[in-house]
Amino acid sequence: MKPRQQRMALIAGVLVGVVVAVGFGFRAFQENLSYFFSPSDVAAGKSPTGRSFRLGGMVVNDSVQREAGSLTIDFTVTDFANAVPVRYTGVLPDLFKEGKGVVVRGQVGADGRFVAQEVLAKHDENYMPPEVKDALAKSRQAENK
């Protein structure tokens, strides 16, 4: 082999080695690399017990209940297969809404309710001006009628 081909082989070899190593690493740490657990993970017992973790999903429509006179709020998080009831006391981010994505950090209490210390809103990848959104909502209503 010429020196140039040797260098090419070295670069290619190192690159392939790193890709394989990173690939194996990701396979091994698949769960740990995920930022949150889904309600189905919780139902299947995959989420950690006895320590806090993050739970992500969609806030179920009409599930939000505010306790009068306090900042405590109850809602349900779903991934459309399973659902977990959540209780949180504190200030919510502006984008927290029913039917929208949310990530909560906390742990499951004795009664099976997830007690959150922190609530983060997960934004989706859709961008549109308010008028377009209104028009879309109207056409959807018309379809449902």
Binding site: F36, G56, N126, Y127, M128
Partner: peptide, 22 residues
């Protein structure tokens, strides 16, 4: 992976989920 960051808007192959004005 599950992330807090939203998914791709432009590079996904179905219709782009961004209004033309944007």
């Amino acid at each position: 992976w599950n992330t807090l960051h939203q998914g791709p808007t432009i590079s996904k192959l179905d219709s782009p989920s961004m209004a033309t004005e944007f």
